[in-house]
Write a protein that binds this DNA or RNA. Structure first.
Lengths: 201, 201
DNA sequence: AGTTGACTTTACTGACCGGTCTACTAGAGG
DNA sequence: CCTCTAGTAGACCGGTCAGTAAAGTCAACT
């Protein structure tokens, strides 16, 4: 049964769904309230502003990605380099499912919001920036492990992890622009190459 | 001296500057008019809607990038693979200059708008999608040339070009989120690796 | 001189924006 | 039974949104 502050969660869920299907500034507090079945007064009882709600949404989403995406993709049940491929396959299947459900490919919620808000709201920008850096860590650890196991020559795992993460954001953006999840499958398979040192002039 | 339809161009320039410093929905027709020194009525004399203005802005921006960025980066005055590095260096110096001027890194105008508008406006999405595909062509041609010259093994130049372009968009997004152009220099240097076939299990 | 039509100006529409305010309800603690 | 408080309800604020309407200006052409 809905406890008292189930209201708060409903607001967060509605905001998450609406904002990431459209964009921050295209979604109003009014519409969030309507979707959540909540009145304006309740909204401002729980959140001092739309901006603060967004921060809360980001926190919950980050927790979700940490546990459900990063945690599972980089679990140590398979060899390190295969985990990286698994991560990209999860991006593909995740976006693929969303596209099948809604007809539209929404892309990365963090990337989308970062694009829209980085120049507008420093707190939001910083939160996403932190999450990005956090997301690079399991990749770097995986690469370190691969180097230790001799699967990879001695590379800089941190720099390579950042490159891989940036590549992930890039293919999500291109896939969103093409509105076609297959982009993720085709380009995701190139990700590991970012990690192999160049041997050409 | 300002010809008659210098007004039209002033509107386009203001919209370009405002929208790409902030975002599509954060900038109103009113503000565009104020900045351009133009009245509402004149705006709607030249453009049937804000959306159509945006399309016009995109056309002009695409022409600019075609000539000033892609054209120069992939000019045949240096060996093919060096052109790719030159492209990424140009992204770095371009964003770096903008950050120095405004204090903020705006990122890729096409990527930004694609992020915000792809799920909202099909015409804008398609235009950006076309530009993306157009931008991949000189990269693919350059790779083909590199293969012919023996600088590269027989790879798929089209797929690799798409990967490189997506990587470019990705590092621009991450750089914007970090608000730090150095990201572009550090990660740009990894781009060529996307092109070298993986030799690891 | 008269007419046309491109362009500008200005006032306006109805809807919506984020946010505030006050009144109300319901349940817990005394 | 009373009070206190967390939460809800909804009217309301000034301001802005994209877009419209209609009157006016001015230069080119007949």
């Amino acid at each position: 049964m809905d406890t008292t502050t189930d209201t708060r969660q409903r607001i967060i869920n509605s905001a998450r769904d609406l904002v990431f299907a459209r964009s921050y500034s295209e979604v109003g507090v009014q519409e969030i309230c309507r979707t959540a079945g909540v009145q304006k007064g309740s909204f401002y009882h729980f959140f001092p502003s739309k901006r603060d709600l967004t921060l809360a949404v980001l926190d919950q989403l980050a927790a979700y990605f940490r546990n459900e995406v990063l945690g599972k993709a980089f679990a140590k049940d398979i060899p390190p380099l295969q985990r990286i491929n698994r991560f990209f396959e999860m991006l593909y299947s995740g976006q693929s499912a969303m596209k099948a459900e809604s007809g539209q490919l929404y892309g990365c919620p963090f990337g989308n919001l970062a694009c829209e808000m980085s120049t507008q709201d420093e707190a939001i920008r910083k939160k996403i920036d932190h999450f990005f850096q956090e997301a690079e860590q399991p990749i770097a650890e995986t690469l370190t492990e691969a180097v230790e196991q001799g699967d990879l020559p001695a590379i800089d795992p941190v720099a390579s992890a950042r490159a891989i993460f940036a590549y992930a954001e890039g293919i999500m953006l291109v896939a969103k622009t093409r509105n076609d999840p297959e982009v993720l499958r085709e380009l995701g398979s190139h990700a590991l190459q970012l990690v192999i040192p160049a041997t050409v002039p």
